[in-house]
Design a protein around this nucleic acid. Structure first.
Length: 137
DNA sequence: GCCAACGTTGGC
DNA sequence: GCCAACGTTGGC
């Protein structure tokens, strides 16, 4: 199983919205970047888990865990792709970006989210990083 | 609101 | 293929 991190702006769609969605499920669409699209289309597999990350908000950070329940399929707008996800677990508290940064040079060294200038909305997460962030949650 | 980083566009 | 201009992201 692979792990991922998927960004969303909570003012548009956040963990509250996912929790309220029918069966805690939603289509993860609107991704408009080719690298991220390729992850959606080619690499994400059913059963993979992903951190739901809140960006562009008061407290950026990881809000919970989702599972991929439907692999990549086309959006109506060519050439973009989406997957379906469901909420697995909502963290009691957000694991904030500030907290992640505290471990940037040790446990989370090399994490793509923390790399300078990274704007990619979907990134793979190394298993060691995944486990460590879970331990913070 | 600012601005660094970086992706995309389009003329050549 | 180059690269300047422009648009977007996202933390602060």
């Amino acid at each position: 199983m692979q792990h991922w991190l998927m960004k969303t702006e909570p003012s548009t769609f956040g963990i509250d919205d996912l929790e309220r969605a029918p069966r805690h499920r939603t289509s993860w669409d609107g991704v408009r970047n080719y690298t991220a699209r390729n992850f959606l289309r080619d690499s994400m597999k059913r059963g993979d888990q992903a951190f739901l990350y809140h960006s562009s908000c008061e407290t950026p950070g990881v809000a919970g865990i989702m599972e991929i329940v439907k692999e990549g399929y086309p959006e109506e707008e060519v050439p973009w792709f989406k997957v379906d996800v469901k909420l697995v677990r909502r963290f009691d508290r957000i694991v904030t970006l500030a907290t992640l940064r505290e471990h940037e040079s040790k446990e989370l060294r090399g994490m793509l989210l923390l790399q300078r200038g990274n704007r990619l909305s979907i990134t793979p997460v190394e298993t060691a990083h995944w486990k460590f962030i879970l331990s913070l949650a």
